[in-house]
Write a protein that binds this DNA or RNA. Structure first.
Lengths: 193, 193
DNA sequence: ATTATCTATAGATCTATAGATAATGC
DNA sequence: ATTATCTATAGATCTATAGATAATGC
């Protein structure tokens, strides 16, 4: 048959792969398990994506795209006051993490694979925006950006440990909202805004 | 021969294992590679430690011991003013990380294995100290502790990415000292100290 | 007559053990 | 006569491919 534009199978594999990779990381993820989740034979996975690594790269690419989007949007609207722009960026990034709570752990865990792609895509695209931001603030702009990302990511990294500290899942929504506001306040305060 | 109290071989394996596990994590670590580093056959590794997992647990135990030590020492000296105690704890913990820069990534990466042991050992031991601390501050004490740990750990987690932001390794010492002081300031400021 | 899918399996990679031998303390 | 060490390999586990067959567009 001709390329039946079979989004269904291909997408099913991609979705299953995303879930599996984020849950278990590259090493613990099993191609057979991914195929199973997708409801296909593992041979099909290789038919569509050739190797486990190529499949992983597709997933990683998507995820980095998400971050890229948020972070660069941060530096759009140069007319908006600095304070508003920062608030927005922090807020959007945090919301992204709420929607993808496994992302920080995933990225950290696969840092060796992530770093090069991250460098190529995110950092290079952001350089001009960072330079312009640098004119508006005292501290190092890259440092500030890293601080924002890290401060937002941390609660998700220690998620499992958070349960330890006895946070019931009912109060989770309000707790997250609280943390978000705290993060905004802390960053702004650091800049004297 | 009788148990020749052969610390040399056993310790060699432990040291090699520590390096390998911290570099590569449990999954990527190879028992053969560990044995090689230690200058012995991999059969010996199994002879002394039975399984890869048991060897790993030995290493993990040591590392958690380090953190436990610092964190609990944090709450010793109840006579010292709060500000001094916190400064000490943050400082000691940061120094520990400087001496073990791979530790944060390792712990995060193996969180599933780490969490239970962490809970059992560190948290339970710390509970009384946390309760007493709670009387002295407004915010949640556990939250504060997590903040301290996370704030200190982050620079090491994003270490690879730090290189990206163009930090030369010559200035590393002073940079780290700077970050440490910043972290202290930030935490104290948050408590109004 | 090209693409999609399946079954079966080759091949690679690792952990762990069996079994033999060397070293050492009693 | 017990412990330490070596060589060789069994066994488990996964990825990836070969080769056959079913489905579909031209």
């Amino acid at each position: 048959m001709e390329p039946k534009e079979n989004r269904t199978t291909e997408e099913a594999i991609l979705e299953a792969a995303e879930a599996e990779f984020i849950e278990k990381g590259f090493d613990q993820a099993r191609t057979v398990s991914i195929a199973q989740r997708a409801g296909v034979t593992n041979a099909l996975l290789h038919y569509y994506f050739r190797t486990k690594e190529q499949l992983f790269d597709k997933i990683l690419d998507r995820k980095i795209g998400l971050i890229e989007e948020v972070v660069t949007s941060l530096f759009a609207d140069p007319d908006l006051p600095l304070k508003e722009r920062l608030t927005r960026v922090i807020s959007r990034h945090f919301d992204l993490l709420v929607a993808n709570p496994g992302l920080p752990r995933f990225l950290m865990g696969e840092m060796h694979r992530v770093a090069p792609l991250m460098k190529e895509r995110v950092l290079s695209k952001m350089l001009p925006a960072l330079m312009s931001l640098q004119k508006e603030i005292d501290m190092d702009a890259t440092h500030l950006l890293l601080d924002i990302l890290s401060q937002n990511m941390f609660p998700f990294l220690v998620g499992p440990a958070l349960e330890l500290s006895g946070v019931a899942s009912e109060g989770m929504d309000t707790l997250l909202e609280q943390i978000k506001q705290e993060n905004i306040t802390i960053i702004l305060k650091r800049l004297g805004l």
